[in-house]
Design a binder for these strands. Structure first.
Length: 434
DNA sequence: TCTGGGGTCCTAGGACCC
DNA sequence: TCTGGGGTCCTAGGACCC
């Protein structure tokens, strides 16, 4: 049943940057305005594209080689997360002028709870939404799509309603009109599995779903879908996660290599590199992992892997690599073609607290930790991965995965610099390539 | 959807305990 | 050794998101 009472018992705003990465590139370099801009050069596939590029048929994850055929004068840029993240911060700040209750949902999206802010801001919810959009567009030099509705799920419906640069306000008494025109698979949280099941049950639009009785939903679906059902009926179910970006529950690194490989040594070094990279990220966030999993992905997209608990929380790869080296062959099958490896670090904590054991191992761990402070400093200076483990050598030296020549030669230069730095800080066990 | 990378949350079912 | 009932914790895997 659709509620049709007061228009905004709760006023939830959703802000979505249009083609965010590509738009940041254009904002950074206005000469790109009006051109076909695509980001994702380092991955070989499109991660974001300007509306001009979209109009000419570029879609997400499309191969760059294909895009070049389609649009010879396309501008392809590597992702620059530092810049995107600065724009992202500015987006949050602008929204925060109107309320402290801002959820930094992702790099290009946020939610804000405007409820109760009409008096302090001396304007209606509609006026706030308009003003926020105007300030975002004007101050950041790109467009945003903004939605205002009763809760997160319907605010998402609103911001998606018109893109790019839309501003859509859905008061409670009009909600059913919007839901009637929204296919069920477009609803946030309803993925391909659930939507095809729903369609089989005769539920084609968001309104069809909203109109179903609670009991019907409860009998057929798990909690998340019952919650979506409530939100589509106008209830406020999903609270905003306000403030500090939540800590990670896990950190993972995976890399696909083309062509796939049967070479044990190569596959192992790919995994080693992923483990190193995951640990770099771990340290960047001052985190420690107490468990991890590693896996290999075969050419036919099957996964096999193992997971482990560590006796101590770690932030450096040694302990993990020791276990992986001992157990790698329990997973690796000779003759199989592998296309990717991956690692997931779990049970993360900030606590550096470690129990000193009786065998003085903590001393060794502290030494490794100090060495890595030097490694991280060197990498900050000379570029990511300037210094890396010997076991990752082949992954660094045989970049079988996509990546153009310029990147590799740049990396080589860094390696030489890294070598000098290594000698200066005296790293005992790291393999560094010249 | 001919498949890149990084995340989160939920559930069912087994293990184990009283 | 069997039966019954109930609770908790953990894990694997599914589904979804950007």
């Amino acid at each position: 049943m659709i509620l049709t009472h007061r228009s905004f018992p709760r006023a939830i705003l959703h802000v979505d940057g249009d083609s965010f990465f590509a738009s940041c590139e254009v904002a950074k370099d206005p000469s790109l305005k009006g051109k076909c801009v695509v980001t994702g050069k380092e991955r070989g596939i499109a991660s974001s594209m300007s509306y001009e590029a979209k109009a000419r048929g570029v879609t997400r994850a499309m191969r760059l080689s294909e895009i070049k055929k389609l649009i010879p004068d396309v501008i392809i840029l590597p992702s620059d997360y530092e810049t995107y993240s600065l724009y992202s911060q500015r987006m949050y700040e602008i929204v925060r002028r109107y309320t402290d209750a801002v959820e930094e949902y992702s790099i290009d999206e946020c939610f804000a709870d405007l409820t109760g802010m009409r008096r302090p801001n001396n304007m209606s919810y509609e006026a706030m939404a308009e003003k926020i959009k105007r300030e975002l567009d004007g101050e950041l030099g790109m467009t945003f799509s903004v939605g205002l509705a009763l809760n997160k799920v319907t605010a998402k419906v609103a911001s998606k309603w018109r893109k790019p640069s839309g501003l859509t306000i859905i008061p409670g008494y009009h909600l059913h009109l919007y839901l009637a025109k929204t296919p069920i698979e477009k609803i946030w949280g309803i993925g391909p599995q659930t939507s095809s099941y729903l369609i089989k049950k005769g539920v084609k639009t968001a309104l069809d779903f909203a109109m179903k009785e609670k009991e019907w939903v409860k009998a057929l679906f798990s909690k998340p879908f019952q919650e979506i059902h409530s939100e589509l009926n106008g209830d406020f179910v999903y609270p905003l996660t306000v403030g500090e970006k939540h800590d990670y529950a896990s950190i993972s690194k995976t890399r696909t290599f083309t062509p796939p490989s049967k070479d044990r040594g190569f596959v192992y070094s790919q995994l080693s590199k992923n483990i190193e990279n995951a640990c770099i990220k771990l340290r960047r966030h001052n985190l420690f992992a107490k468990a991890f999993a590693f896996y290999l992905k075969t050419q036919d997209f099957r996964y096999s892997g193992l997971d482990f608990k560590l006796s101590q929380a770690v932030s450096v790869p040694q302990e993990i690599l020791k276990i992986v080296s001992e157990r790698f062959d329990d997973v690796y099958r000779p003759g199989f073609e592998y296309r990717a490896t991956g690692v997931v670090l779990m049970e993360l904590s900030h606590s550096d607290a470690r129990t000193l054991d009786l065998f003085g191992r903590s001393g060794a761990i502290d030494r490794i930790k100090r060495v890595y402070e030097g490694v991280d400093a060197a990498c900050a200076k000379f570029g990511k991965h300037a210094v890396f483990l010997g076991s990752s050598f082949r992954a660094m030296n045989e970049p079988a995965h996509r990546g153009d020549r310029a990147d590799s030669s740049e990396r080589r230069k860094n390696l030489v610099k890294g070598e000098n730095e290594r000698q200066r800080i005296g790293l005992p066990f790291l393999g560094v390539v010249k």
